[in-house]
């Protein structure tokens, strides 16, 4: 259950990062890592990117990169923007509920 939850959250964060500006794989990973995501392997974002592209929430264009091979730059599609909006709303609701419960537990422990 935990893995599935993390995957769902990661997907939402990928959409958010891509929504900020057009970006490519390595940069996406760096942005996620600098926000605190810890990767067992950096490549884990690629199966997710493939899925999001297949679902039509993100699209890409290829441009030459300074390092040599062409680079794929991702941007959100209209469907992706709607999905991101939905994720934001769901996340706000969920995180608030979870925080409420956690805070209540924490206070009980304090009282005891």
């Amino acid at each position: 259950m935990f893995t599935q939850m993390v995957r769902g959250v990661l997907e939402g964060c990928l959409l958010a990062v891509i929504g900020e500006e057009e970006t490519y794989g390595y940069e996406i990973m760096e942005k996620l890592a600098s926000s605190g995501f810890v990767f067992a392997r950096e490549g884990s974002i690629y199966p997710l990117l493939l899925r999001l592209e297949k679902e039509g929430t993100i699209a890409s264009t290829q441009r030459p990169s300074p390092s040599g091979p062409n680079r794929k730059y991702y941007h959100l599609t209209l469907k992706g923007e709607q999905q991101l909006q939905l994720f934001r709303e769901n996340w706000n609701e969920l995180s608030q509920s979870v925080n409420n419960i956690m805070d209540r537990n924490y206070r009980k422990e304090d009282d005891a």
Binding site: G25, M29, E42, G43, Y46, G68, P69, N70, R71, K72
Partner: peptide, 17 residues
């Protein structure tokens, strides 16, 4: 085509890393 595309991305990532 898609396989070549993802392999190109993985190569780019590995090179930067």
């Amino acid at each position: 085509t898609k396989a070549s595309e993802i392999l190109m991305e993985l190569e780019d990532h590995l090179l930067t890393a």
